[in-house]
Design a protein around this nucleic acid. Structure first.
Lengths: 137, 137
DNA sequence: TCATTTACGCAACAAAGTTGCATAAATATT
DNA sequence: AATATTTATGCAACTTTGTTGCGTAAATGA
């Protein structure tokens, strides 16, 4: 779909910056981080404007966020450091409450095996669930 | 398990800082971000030291990282903006290559429904797979 | 107790993210 | 088509987060 169409469909003004951001996405077919876009559009779109464009796009449903595992993470004790060893696996899910923004390990849950597209070799799995926790319910 | 024991088991020197970090974890039973620990241990453990303690702990398997969905994210076009609409669902998995660190949407995969512990209400799911992609294989 | 290794704290820096505000550009109105 | 209104942009200044180097202090081993 053309950038202009996407903008109209999502009730967004068509501006140069937004169109260029959408063009970047359509020519890559992979997820892009803020700084990647920033470099790609250096001199064309302001850094702050880019933050605001991405925020808008997410709010309106044009883009979706994907948590990244490199920076801004939380840490939890590995299971085998607890008194009772829950099978020593870190393939468990994590639950993050959108209210209190606390994150818990869901120890008694193992990420199911699944079919992955041809050619990809999976060595790590992060399943992050969002919602409302007991306390905040 | 006591902090000192954990350190010995993982081949780490027992220092005041490390012990205090482990104590923080054991008194919370939830995942902690760097800045939470920083506040909790303000004046006791240096900010940089804390980064290094966490790195060490992760390397030695004392702690594990959990990607956080608030900051340092990547963005991808929502499925319904593509020419062919793949069922309009964002409950799909993402694959991040540890070599080239590119992230792809795995469109033809839906996160399976699963039993979540009592009291938690799940509204969002992020499944992030790590490994090696086609290009880098 | 002394030598060696490793961790710590501090300073300085780089990168990432936020806020406020004046200006420019996009839509709406006549 | 010109003007008014709304919204987005760019810039400056700032805060937060993460990194690197290095001298000192603390922990282990002899």
């Amino acid at each position: 779909m053309k950038p202009e169409q996407i903008l109209i469909q999502h009730d967004l003004r068509k501006t140069q910056g937004r169109i260029m951001v959408l063009q970047e996405f359509s020519k890559h077919d992979k997820a892009l981080a803020h700084n990647e876009l920033q470099h790609a559009l250096a001199g064309k779109v302001d850094r702050v404007t880019l933050y605001r464009i991405l925020d808008q796009f997410e709010k309106k449903g044009v883009l979706h966020k994907i948590p990244d595992d490199e920076v801004s993470v939380k840490y939890a004790l590995c299971a085998h450091n607890h008194e009772i060893d829950h099978q020593h696996s870190d393939d468990h899910a994590h639950f993050k409450c959108n209210d209190c923004s606390e994150t818990f390990c869901i120890d008694d849950f193992t990420i199911p095996n699944m079919k992955i597209p041809e050619g990809f070799k999976v060595t790590e799995k992060f399943l992050l669930l969002g919602g409302v926790c007991k306390k905040c319910a």
